[in-house]
Simulated assay, not measured.
Amino acid sequence: MKIKIMGTIVQNNFLDKFFPNGKTSVYGIIGNPISHSVSPYMQTQAFLKLKINAIYVPFEVQRGDISQVINSLKTLNIKGINVTVPYKEVILPYLDEIDQDALNIGSVNTIKIENKIARGFNTDAPGFILALKEENISVKNKNVIILGAGGTAKALAYILLKEKAKSIFLVNRTLEKAKKLEDSLKKYGNIKSYPLKNEILKDLIKQSDILINTTSIGLKKDDPPLFNYNFLKENKNLVVVDVIYFLTPLLKKAQEFSLKTIDG
């Protein structure tokens, strides 16, 4: 007999044998908030289609509990997790090993746990470049605006500089945080930080090729805009990227101006 789970048709005898039981591998994602994430649906659906005996679940972790996460995952024999905001940077001290690129970036988004060893990786960076290449977009000699100065911003700025972007314009509400990020990455290329102000964004948009939002603004329907999105029309060749999974107000406005857009 066939039944449908999460939109995927599977054989009933497959469920009897594999899903879930004492041999089911558990993966997940930690963050706060986490209810918006579509990763549990996508990943578990992929496991079902590939007939892998595993599930992927969300874990909303309170900020005060982050120091306990890794030991808890080891104790529960969880195989691995993804890490999203706001823990991509603060989780580092609790890991046993960290990949060199992740060390250079200063943040991780993927943790593999094997033989009680927690290893951190950053797949944001190579994954982002791959997504651009799939859209036939090269960053070489391009000017790129990055909105935000958190872990994702650092990962993308790092890989963009390694891929020979001409300049990175790092824009953040807290200028001091952006400058700290600038200082950590300037050895890799040309990067400069700016405060998040309308008049500055308008000028930067005119001279840029790509604009990337790495903030969480746009996750909620009532989020205020980061800046006056009408400024996007100042550059008809601008590519607008939002790391959020769906069509955000930023992307929607960009599409109204017939700009190329990419979501997370």
Score class of each variant (00 low, 15 high):
residue 3 I to D: 09
residue 5 I to H: 02
residue 5 I to N: 02
residue 5 I to D: 08
residue 8 T to N: 13
residue 23 K to A: 12
residue 28 G to Y: 08
residue 28 G to D: 08
residue 32 N to K: 12
residue 35 S to T: 13
residue 36 H to W: 12
residue 36 H to R: 07
residue 38 V to S: 13
residue 42 M to I: 01
residue 42 M to W: 01
residue 51 K to V: 13
residue 52 I to R: 00
residue 54 A to E: 00
residue 54 A to I: 01
residue 55 I to T: 01
residue 61 V to H: 09
residue 71 N to Q: 13
residue 71 N to S: 11
residue 74 K to E: 10
residue 77 N to W: 02
residue 77 N to Q: 12
residue 89 E to F: 09
residue 89 E to T: 04
residue 90 V to Y: 10
residue 92 L to Y: 03
residue 95 L to G: 05
residue 99 D to R: 05
residue 99 D to L: 03
residue 101 D to P: 14
residue 103 L to Q: 13
residue 109 N to R: 02
residue 109 N to T: 08
residue 112 K to S: 10
residue 112 K to C: 02
residue 115 N to V: 15
residue 115 N to T: 14
residue 118 A to V: 12
residue 118 A to E: 08
residue 123 T to Q: 00
residue 123 T to W: 00
residue 129 I to C: 02
residue 130 L to W: 07
residue 133 K to V: 01
residue 133 K to N: 10
residue 134 E to T: 07
residue 139 V to G: 03
residue 140 K to C: 02
residue 142 K to G: 00
residue 146 I to C: 04
residue 158 Y to A: 01
residue 170 L to D: 00
residue 175 L to F: 12
residue 178 A to N: 02
residue 180 K to N: 14
residue 180 K to I: 12
residue 181 L to N: 04
residue 187 K to C: 14
residue 192 K to C: 10
residue 198 N to Q: 14
residue 206 K to Y: 14
residue 210 I to F: 04
residue 214 T to Y: 05
residue 222 D to V: 08
residue 228 N to S: 09
residue 231 F to Y: 14
residue 232 L to I: 01
residue 233 K to F: 03
residue 245 Y to V: 05
residue 246 F to K: 15
residue 246 F to Q: 15
residue 250 L to P: 01
residue 251 L to N: 03
residue 254 A to V: 01
residue 257 F to M: 09
residue 258 S to N: 15
